[in-house]
Write a protein that binds this DNA or RNA. Structure first.
Lengths: 230, 230
DNA sequence: ATTAATCTTTAGATTTGTCTAAATTTTATT
DNA sequence: AATAAAATTTAGACAAATCTAAAGATTAAT
């Protein structure tokens, strides 16, 4: 079975929102896709009819197994093309997302496999996201300690190393929590403090002790700190 | 200005039909695009409104300079991708057309230039068709004797060197005629015979004497091609 | 537990590209 | 030149994907 570009975009967005943890809502999906909730509802019905989605009106929705399989196929194509654009064509890693959004809809399965082979089966794309194999399997993204995070690489806080009230108080004061997206701008060797930038806030600095408690994972579609997309 | 995939397909088809010499008609275009004449008329009006086409109802049409420029851009992308698919991804030259039909609609101009650079500015695609440069200029294609045809380069029989019944009998037996598309798979130096492959038939071999009577031109836009700059 | 606020869906319209069937224009034939 | 044939265009309809506006369902708040 084949799908329209629009259907594929919905499937991919649902997949990504599901990965981010929360239950996906019609409104979430509408804003992710830059469209209106009414349009989303229409498409949900189509995807349900094609058995890609578990959906009941007013009750929410999630990808079916088949929908997930399709989503992983699109993600595979997107990330392989990003890898090609950066490592072969010498694009910057911040320039390739939009182009890959087009390339991911090219349908030939043979093309994907030949490309994968040509690139020697890369496991991660230029943003650090894992590339699913032909069966949809991919390596888990490992959490990285903030201390070890690459400069200017956006990542999302996924765990904290302690639950102490003192730590939580400090995190709250600095507007950092699970899901916060940030990047390291500078590392100071004098005291191992870091200058970081949290989305929608001006840069500020944090201590080595604090940094050590924060674990992060790279973001899908991460960009330079200057131009926050997604 | 940008164009829909459908608009681009119309522009490209008009370009190709114009290259084949005759004046292009609504019916020709409809059958080329596997659609109906009424649909063609609708699109012609759209393309005229976008100044890509000189068109007056019932009087015929032709690409404007701007339309030609756009067509050459699409042809450039198509042929560069075909080159990539065959020479980098190791597709057979007979497998790449449909895939390139999709890839030619990817919009990024930067991608085209990086790809061209990556491939070291090839002048001809795997079928022997010339690849327009960024200004729409490309090398003229001349008729080539079958003896001189490059290996694995598809070409269309455009002339035979004799009208003898003996020759025509042989050509008929081998299913070769004007317009036949074939490629040379192998050349044998022992007797200068050639192993060739005619579309839709298994490969077979022909003698030096026969090969010498056959003149071919690479597929698609036949003879002329100027440059439309600016 | 009502009411208010929010979220989701329906109803009906719009745009793009297509179609069929009928009308119009051009061209070819007698 | 008149008429038949062919090519082209118009008129009206449809499917896909979207929109706005309004109605329906759920959730939150008093």
């Amino acid at each position: 079975m084949s799908f329209t570009e629009s259907e594929e975009n919905y499937i991919k967005s649902i997949y990504h929102l599901q990965q981010q943890g929360e239950v996906v809502s019609t409104n979430d999906l509408a804003s992710e896709l830059q469209t209106k909730p009414a349009s989303v509802t229409d498409m949900l019905k189509k995807l349900k009819a094609k058995k890609l989605l578990n959906y009941e009106r007013y009750k929410g929705f999630s990808l079916s197994d088949e929908g997930t399989r399709v989503a992983l196929g699109i993600v595979r194509k997107h990330r392989l093309w990003e890898y090609f654009l950066v490592h072969e064509l010498e694009f910057g890693w911040d320039e390739v997302h939009e182009i890959a959004e087009e390339l991911e809809h090219i349908s030939s399965p043979q093309l994907v496999e030949k490309l994968d082979n040509y690139l020697s089966h890369p496991k991660f794309d230029p943003h650090g996201d894992p590339i699913p194999d032909i069966n949809g399997r991919m390596e888990l993204r490992k959490q990285v300690n903030l201390i070890d995070l690459q400069l200017n690489c956006e990542a999302e806080v996924s765990a904290v190393g302690s639950q102490s009230t003192e730590l939580l108080e400090l995190l709250k004061h600095k507007n950092i929590g699970i899901g916060t997206v940030l990047a390291v701008l500078k590392k100071f060797t004098f005291d191992n403090s870091l200058e970081i930038k949290v989305r929608d806030f001006p840069p500020f600095s944090i201590s080595q002790q604090l940094a050590q408690t924060l674990f992060l994972k790279p973001l899908y579609g991460a960009t330079t700190v200057g131009s926050i997309s997604k």
